[in-house]
């Protein structure tokens, strides 16, 4: 065999083949997989921004539901306690009562402030 024909034959480099023997190759692959596990996990869970983007719609829906429930609760509580009725009318009534009381013996000692505080300051 001449030099030229010999040089046309493939060189047997199988001793350098990293995929052989199979068991050693499996270990090499496992090593790469372990090294890349963190990056793959991050891809599965997503970046914080991507996570926020994924949860944006459900969060918005939950917020709207909470707002509706809060509004309904507030209305019902307001109805039971009559908070809506409290206003300037009560003050006006109290002042009227004071003017009525003013006709009695203690009229000089009773002020609108005392009527509003129920006389506890005494």
């Amino acid at each position: 065999m001449t030099d030229e024909t010999f040089s046309e034959l493939p060189t047997d480099l199988s001793a350098l083949d990293p995929t052989q023997p199979p068991l050693a190759f499996a270990r090499r692959v496992a090593s790469v997989r372990n090294a890349a596990a963190g990056a793959l996990r991050r891809r599965r869970s997503g970046t914080p921004l991507a996570m926020l983007a994924n949860w944006r719609a459900p969060l918005l829906a939950a917020l709207i539901v909470m707002m509706i429930i809060s509004a309904a609760l507030f209305r019902s509580v307001a109805g039971e306690t009559g908070i809506d009725a409290i206003g300037t009318d009560e003050v006006a009534d109290a002042l009227t009562a004071a003017s009525v009381l003013g006709d009695g013996d203690d009229a000089a000692a009773v002020t609108p402030a005392e009527i509003l505080l129920g006389g506890y300051e005494k």
Partner: peptide, 10 residues
Amino acid sequence: CLRGDSDAFD
């Protein structure tokens, strides 16, 4: 792999 599939990476 873009979705983190380790089998595909393998």
